[in-house]
C-alpha cells in the first residue's frame, strides 16, 4: 500500500514472502474445503482462503503477473462452472426417481469418516469452494482495476499510476 514502489506490486520483501507463502495458503484453503465434513471448515471458509491467496498475489505482484496464473475471464468461467456443477450434482440425484439434491452416493453409514464418506457432500463442498473463491477473487480484481484507472484519471500528479 504505502510501500508501493514497484510498478504494479509491493516491495521486494513482500514479494519474496508471498512467493514462499502462496502455495501454503492455497494448500490450506484446499485442505479446509476437502475436510469440511469431518472438521470445522468447509466450502465457504476454504473458498475465502483460496480467494485470499490469489488476492495476496495480486497485491504483492501486481495484476499482470497474477493474470498469467488466473485471468479474470478464467475466474468467471470457473465460477459459472462451479455453479453448474453444483446444479448438475443436484440433477444427477434425480436420475433414479429420487429428489433433487438427494444424496445418492452415500455409502454405508457405519464406516469411518473418510474423504468420500459424505457422498455428494464432498462434491458440493468442492463446487461451493470454487464458486466462492472465484467469485470473490473476481470482485476484488474488478475493484482493484477500477482503483488503478481512477487514480490515473483523477489525480494528475500521481507519477506512477499503477503503484500497488
Amino acid at each position: 500500500m504505502s510501500g508501493g514502489t514497484h510498478q504494479g506490486g509491493m516491495s521486494l520483501i513482500v514479494r519474496t514472502v508471498t512467493r514462499w507463502l502462496k502455495a501454503f495458503i492455497l494448500l490450506f484453503g484446499i485442505y479446509v474445503v476437502l475436510y469440511g465434513h469431518v472438521s470445522p471448515g468447509g466450502g465457504f471458509a476454504g473458498g475465502v482462503v483460496i480467494a485470499c491467496a490469489y488476492i495476496l498475489l495480486t497485491l504483492a505482484e501486481g495484476r499482470e503477473r497474477t493474470a498469467r496464473l488466473l485471468s479474470e475471464r478464467l475466474a468467471a468461467v470457473l465460477a459459472v462452472a462451479g455453479l453448474l456443477f453444483f446444479l448438475g450434482v443436484g440433477l444427477a440425484g434425480m436420475v433414479g426417481g429420487r429428489a433433487f439434491l438427494d444424496n445418492f452416493l452415500v455409502g454405508d453409514s457405519g464406516a469411518e469418516p473418510a474423504l468420500a464418506s459424505g457422498g455428494i457432500i464432498e462434491l458440493c463442498e468442492i463446487a461451493i469452494g470454487i464458486i466462492v473463491s472465484m467469485s470473490l477473487f473476481l470482485a476484488f480484481a474488478v475493484l482493484s482495476r477500477f482503483r488503478v484507472s481512477l487514480g490515473d484519471g483523477d489525480e494528475t500528479a500521481t507519477g506512477e499510476g499503477g503503484a500497488s
Binding site: L136, F140, L143
Partner: peptide
C-alpha cells in the same frame, strides 16, 4: 459469506 459478497457489491457502488 453472502455478507461479504454484498459488501463487495456495496463498495463497487460507492466507487
Amino acid at each position: 459469506v453472502i455478507g461479504l459478497a454484498v459488501l463487495a457489491l456495496m463498495v463497487a457502488l460507492c466507487v
